[in-house]
Design a protein around this nucleic acid. Structure first.
Lengths: 338, 338
DNA sequence: TCATCATCTTTAAACGTTTTCGCTTTCTTG
DNA sequence: CAAGAAAGCGAAAACGTTTAAAGATGATGA
């Protein structure tokens, strides 16, 4: 590859001058700047990011960590969407992305070690499960610029989906259509799950609807098998629910199909609601009633905050940014008032 | 961060010795090796990948390029699955992944330039659309170790989904159930599409079934709107098809729902087949008949080949590796023989 | 005893940058 | 016109590694 040295030779100046010319420093004349930049382009020069990083301690690399057990973040629509948006935003600021995993090469590294090894300028943590992880704690304590998604910590900024408003809207919508026997199959335990669950209960209370423990079942995100079992279980109650809220759209789709196999049709016999607003949920029949999470905005805002943090333009203790979703009114929840 | 220098000081040896001890060279005594390695661990040392890369010309970074117009590779299940598998495989060999995009920072880079800038050791090209791109040609000529997925070139190894066998199996299955009026809505033009289309026609010919031009329509991958229109169009033929093959599962799901809205039920009134075998296709009712592409194996094989290529253990001119899928027999294709 | 050899260690250069500081040269200004 | 300022440039060190080559030490054999 052609280096700064070659350009220096070609232009008859020192490498220092070339470096400064390319970086547009003020202490080099306009004319030499121009000739240097032109020959650089002519010779097909591109800076060596490693060498630069070595000197400047800036890699222009951002680590992305999916905090999860199942190790399947990429293949899940919600996370892929958030990441996609995040990626576009950081790329336009000159950053590349490195996936942080605990499993690099023979010598296992913790996520923190992986970050140090690659010298990332900052880290995005996308929360999937609970944060019981020791490795995660090590990373959070490290002092690296860090933003998390769907997880709130006092030590760094975070961007969260507004599950409170979302769940409230959803329950109010369902209740507004005359439902009082609403079951909720919620997902794996995590911050997100507990907020949704709490809000679910609070909203019922506020609407003067009884909370029945037999209508609250812990399920799993994105797990249709598990969903199916729980749906059957909740339907075995003597007093059946008229509507079931599922942990996510994927599970909801599974539920609809499981129900139809049982000879129950949605929404005539039973109503179903999801959460996420994945594209597919609006393609199916019946169109799913769900809460669309604004993944694009979440990714973009997380990127902005992280970059600001890296550039020390943001205090570390900003309040969490809560991103509102929106109710997608499908046809899976029946109006009992009519 | 603690560097090799600190360890040298702590152990009372030179930095050269430390370096060699850590890299397990033979010309350093076992005892010093041990002490060096122990203090390295004790001091929390991790090598600086930039410095190492600068010397060795090896970054242990692999560039991944989605060749596509829509810029949405990550959010599409098929590609995400392939990438996920690829990623796991390269990670276990100590490589990280860098997304190559044409859009890094203010100064736009071509994919090739991006690769040079980041000094990737090799490139994975995941083909989505046609390869008309100049930027792509530049990259392919660059001589970088390279493997492509779903695109065949003489200049580098490739891993492709066996669309020929897949499409043949699918058509034979459908014909075997008594269908002779089979429509095929195919996707955006690309290598994959033309192989599928060719095989579709060849198989019909071999089975002595007429090819009707009005049953062949160009659609788009993952586009339910477009699919809907084309389904309506093909149903407006005076002699309607009894089965429609769609470009992918997502489109097929869209088609099923569009049909049901028209009052046609699948598979009673019309049969539907997809392609891909995404998880969801097997959750829905009717379960989709489709060809499952072995994304996991594709990703893993591509990774193995690329790493071998990087290590110069593989000739550049290996034949393309064709990965067979499998027919998933759902319930969306009716048996007309009964 | 001395040359030879094997084993371990260190010196020093190099990778491609950035940046501090000092050196020239030219320009201002009183 | 002298002196000081400003502008432009270069020398050199530094970032954290790897590695070729040379050096040191002790063992071996004649």
């Amino acid at each position: 590859m052609v280096s700064i040295k070659d350009i220096a030779a070609a232009c008859g100046v020192s490498i220092a001058t070339v470096s400064k010319a390319l970086n547009d420093h003020k202490d080099v004349s306009e004319t030499t700047k121009r000739t240097v930049q032109e020959t650089a382009k002519k010779m097909g020069y591109f800076p060596n990011s490693q060498a630069r990083a070595l000197k400047t301690n800036r890699t222009y690399n951002i680590g992305v960590l999916f905090s999860e057990l199942t190790n399947s973040g990429l293949t899940q629509n919600y996370f892929a969407s958030v990441l996609d948006s995040f990626k576009k935003q950081v790329e336009s600021a000159g950053f590349d992305i490195t996936f942080i995993s605990g499993n690099i090469g023979e010598r296992k590294m913790t996520p923190y070690e992986h970050c140090m090894y690659r010298n990332v300028d900052g880290v995005l943590i996308v929360s999937v499960d609970d944060f019981v992880d020791n490795a995660m704690i090590e990373l959070m304590k490290s002092g690296l610029p860090m933003v998390s998604i769907d997880y709130i910590s006092e030590n760094h900024p975070s961007v969260v989906s507004d599950n409170e408003t979302g769940m409230r809207q959803l329950v109010e919508y369902i209740a507004g259509r005359g439902h009082t026997k609403i079951a909720y199959i919620y997902g794996d335990s995590s911050d997100v799950t507990s907020i949704r669950l709490r809000t679910f209960k609070e909203t019922l209370v506020r609407l003067n609807i009884n909370i029945r423990s037999e209508f609250l079942l812990q399920g799993r995100y994105h797990d249709t098998k598990c969903t199916e079992l729980l749906v059957k279980q909740v339907l075995s109650c003597s007093d059946k629910p008229t509507c079931i809220i599922l942990p996510d759209d994927f599970a909801a789709i599974g539920a609809i199909n499981a129900l139809e196999e049982l000879g129950l049709s949605v929404p005539e016999d039973i109503s179903i609601a999801g959460y996420d607003g994945i594209v597919l949920s609006q393609v199916l029949r019946p169109k799913l009633t769900t809460i669309r999470q604004d993944t694009e905005r979440m990714g973009a805002e997380a990127a902005k905050r992280l970059i600001a943090l890296i550039n020390k333009e943001l205090p570390e203790d900003t309040a969490p940014l809560s991103i509102k979703g929106s109710l997608l009114e499908g046809a899976s929840v029946k109006d009992l008032n009519r």
